[in-house]
């Protein structure tokens, strides 16, 4: 068994209300950052999987992404190997 680490990035689909993105964008004038736009806020999930190989680890994460981490009706996601944890 090897431990494989992944990151799942989840974002609201285009056209879906993104209240966090809107709220953040609304605060930008207070930071004199008026040239910034199209702010969107999603979710980043890091996880580790113990599996025999990378392919089977990946398929577990793909299943969880579609069933748990994202709601396919309103969110899109991408699964990638975790190169470097943020923290």
């Amino acid at each position: 068994m090897t431990t494989f680490r992944f990151v799942v990035a989840v974002m609201p689909r285009a056209g879906i209300l993104d209240p966090q993105g809107r709220a953040v964008e609304g605060s930008l004038p207070h930071l004199q950052a008026t040239e910034v736009h199209d702010v969107r806020v999603g979710r980043r999930i890091e996880l580790a999987v113990d599996a025999a190989d990378g392919g089977s680890a990946r398929s577990i994460v793909d299943r969880l992404a579609a069933e748990l981490f994202a709601n396919p009706l309103i969110e899109a996601w991408r699964v990638e190997p975790l190169e470097e944890p943020v923290a």
Partner: peptide, 16 residues
């Protein structure tokens, strides 16, 4: 809705 037993999704209120 999350379980797929009824259709749809409930988003954040438009008023935030």
């Amino acid at each position: 809705a999350e379980a797929g037993l009824v259709p749809g999704a409930l988003l954040r209120n438009a008023s935030l």
